[in-house]
Design a protein around this nucleic acid. Structure first.
Lengths: 332, 332
DNA sequence: TTGAAAGCGCTAACAA
DNA sequence: TTGTTAGCGCTTTCAA
């Protein structure tokens, strides 16, 4: 049995498409369709299990009820959890999530972005690696509903949901510093996004506040394309340099480093402290001890949905920049 | 500047929609469009940054190049990682992933499923809680491209990507049993899916093989809607019953239990062994020690994509049932 | 070598 | 109270 369209229904029932369409969209009363006709349609529709074609509806209405969620990696717990919260929230409102992972790759980001737009997503939620791209600028100039989170480019006016990167990192690092912890190294992904830059600034600030000399050599950068190998190399360097504390600017490299420590430097596991931005469950149980900065995931999701809904409702937006305060988690 | 459609392009250039469409779809040569015209179109399209409307294309072609990915919870690392692999793979082929989390809720599953179908997804990848639902039966009877993974219903003929639940669980439990580990409890989600049933069977089989009496009381079921509270209650019961080993049928409850142990039963952490289906990074570092069964995530994703592609290509499918072998991870 | 026109399934203004 | 019709943006057959 082939799938019925609204036309089939109308024909089968000897009615017009209009009438059927009105009833199916709960406009029966408003449009003065007789109760009898309404019932006839509704019953028949149930009987043949009619399923409206949303694509046709979308084309007609210019609205797809989908939202693009573009992140570096959907399997990163931080993005997965936020994704889940967004999904739940938007599901309530009749929206679906189209997901795309970019691996921090500019080309892929642009491609996915374009595909999302071609697919007529109604809004975009983006943790972008490259806010200054033409694709994004063009969207922004058309007032396309768009919220950035986790990433910022101060030169670009837009909606941003962020956390206080600098201060939080400063606090976290300071809480690690004590008489036995005076030589602190840092490992980061390439800091071509401002959040990472600011986290590194926070690290520097903490050193300064505690009169610890800043040693440029102890800031190690890992290339995005080669996370495991890169982290291994830089961790080795720092350990051989005799650091007592390693600071990480995001969870990914911290998790890799924990694995490395337990695999190759088991003997040093008690002698070294870790500090990491982003919190993951693992930190509760792992060695070395990790002081971490937990991002307020629920709040990030909440503000994001708030802004998007407002734009979708009112069709306009004054750009908002919301900065949330993460939570410091110390582990003794 | 309003978005240009193919009609606008045609008008601006004094050509017909047909010609423009042919060229844009790389059929210029095939359709004998002159090089000059082709170049004119291509140049103009680039100039005005024309983006084709995929919705219109989809409606016309009856193909959306989207695939629905329906799982209990996209933020569960198991489903998130598989999701990522699927996304990468299908992206190469020009497909996108629409995601839906069901929380093991039958109603939500049906609703999301229907929405996916209404949105004309080209295929579905489902870790379903309720394979016997009318919605699924109806899809199956229409030969809708559909692959189940992680879940099975032997009464329903379909494509399944599974792992050997029973044997693997048996092996894992047996590897836990020794002179000091003789009283083994089990905590599971409601086993209304076969994979969980089989894992419980595996547990029983291990006991039997080792001549340990099976005590029905030591199998504890946690309701899906109340995971944390439920796990807390059942773990307490088992500990008070004096078990020396706790077996979990999936990672979710095991992770919760690890947290509970470290929070409320710190003193017992060294005296108890955990066995869990599904592996997560956390297990490498947590106490109690966890013996876990790691699902072959890459292989699951690979076989899933293989089957879907074959169906999409050939329009037909003899149902396949692929059972993969997970890896036992012992931690001493 | 190019164009006219029908139609994918739906909505909604207008007519009856 | 219900129906006719145009059209959303695209593809593709058939004609020129």
């Amino acid at each position: 049995m082939k799938k019925k369209s609204i036309k089939d229904i109308a024909q089968d029932l000897g009615l017009s498409k209009t009438t059927v369409s009105f009833v199916l969209n709960n406009k029966g009363d408003e449009k003065n369709i007789s109760k009898k006709t309404q019932k006839k349609i509704l019953d028949y529709v149930r009987e043949v299990d009619y399923q409206p074609n949303q694509i046709a509806k979308s084309l007609k209405k210019g609205k797809t009820n989908t939202i693009g969620y573009l992140v570096p990696d959907i399997s990163n717990p931080f993005f997965a959890k936020i994704g889940r919260l967004l999904e739940d929230h938007f599901w309530e409102k009749g929206y679906h999530l189209l997901i795309g992972s970019t691996d921090e790759n500019k080309d892929k980001e642009t491609q996915v972005l374009n595909m999302f737009v071609n697919r007529q997503v109604d809004a975009l939620i983006v943790a972008s690696c490259f806010i200054q791209s033409d694709a994004i600028k063009s969207l922004l100039s058309q007032d396309f509903p768009l919220v950035f989170f986790d990433r910022e480019d101060p030169e670009i006016e837009a909606n941003y949901i962020l956390v206080e990167n600098k201060i939080s990192m400063k606090n976290a690092v300071e809480s690690a510093i004590d008489s036995k912890s005076q030589k602190l190294g840092l490992i980061s992904l390439t800091p071509d996004v401002y959040s990472l830059k600011n986290r590194i600034e926070g690290y520097k600030m903490a050193l300064e506040n505690n009169k610890i000399d800043f040693d440029k050599e102890l800031i190690r950068i890992v290339d995005n394309n080669n996370l495991k190998k890169g982290t291994e190399k830089e961790l080795k360097f720092l350990i051989e340099s005799g650091v007592d504390t390693v600071v990480f600017t995001n969870n990914q490299i911290a998790v890799i480093a924990i694995w490395l420590m337990n695999t190759y430097y088991k003997d040093k596991v008690n002698a070294i402290k870790f500090v990491s931005f982003d919190n993951v469950d693992l930190f509760d149980y792992s060695m070395p001890k990790v002081i971490s900065v937990a991002q307020p995931i629920e709040k990030i999701a909440m503000h994001t949905t708030d802004i998007i809904e407002e734009i979708l409702r009112s069709k306009k937006s004054e750009n908002k920049r919301i900065e949330l305060t993460p939570k410091l988690i110390e582990r003794k």
